[in-house]
Design a protein around this nucleic acid. Sequence first.
DNA 1: TAAAGTAATCGGAATGATTCCGAATTAAAG
DNA 2: CTTTAATTCGGAATCATTCCGATTACTTTA
Lengths: 138, 138
Amino acid sequence: MSIDEAWDILLKYDYKRTRNREILLQFFDQADRYVTAMEVRVAVEQDNPGISFDTIYRNLAMFSKLGILDETELNGERLFRMQCATDHHHHHFICTTCGGTKSIPICPMDSVTVNLSDYEIEGHKFEIYGRCPSCIAG
Amino acid sequence: MSIDEAWDILLKYDYKRTRNREILLQFFDQADRYVTAMEVRVAVEQDNPGISFDTIYRNLAMFSKLGILDETELNGERLFRMQCATDHHHHHFICTTCGGTKSIPICPMDSVTVNLSDYEIEGHKFEIYGRCPSCIAG
DNA sequence: TAAAGTAATCGGAATGATTCCGAATTAAAG
DNA sequence: CTTTAATTCGGAATCATTCCGATTACTTTA
């Protein structure tokens, strides 16, 4: 997702165009990988020293709820990244060293043959973890 | 996994047979679903009022590392359950209301056709979330 | 079955991430 | 330019989890 697309969503829901949100979106746009809240904080403080935790966390949660960010959890750490372009549903390999991802075009839900007809399905998660080529090399 | 199998593992690694571990294992054995650390605490305090958080968390982490417990995360909460019998690798539907599970016999890794040969795969996660029939009923 | 040695536990303090809150600031609309 | 409401700030509060030193309880060995 581009910064512009993110703003389309934010403005549609009457969120204001603020400097902090601009900084956050720009950071996620260029990061292009999963980052921890701590990494976000450190990076964002370059552009706005004195930004409060509250502002960071409040916006991260809101972005995540609106589908602008994608949120996951790895080894007890919350990770965020810009949502992929939403052309089709897919999953990811996630590098446990750098947070980089690689798309996995299949969705296991297509192959689930177990009868879950009496169940109400709310969601699913499929992720592959490991180290990417450049982290192995480096 | 049965309580006896859990003890086989613990004793093999020279962990001692203590009352608290016995209580913890019995609780997980009869719970047979994903429970939060808080639920563990409340339940275990019935049998040993005054058990310390430290003891609970230390043993949960150790059980999890040894493969006696299975650990996951849902909506920011850590969940634990007794590891399934290890006859074959599989995944789960998890009820977000009661923590109950249903086995999903397939593993999406079998169908992953993306070339990850330059990647070092450390693990994967596949879970389906929703509500089970008895929680839907009420 | 007593003693010794070491692991495990306890209780409470410390930590660390996240959230809350009231006051001040800022964006957007009129 | 004013107004209004959203947003942010700063710091305190919360919550789960972990740490720590002192005590207790296993297990082994004699």
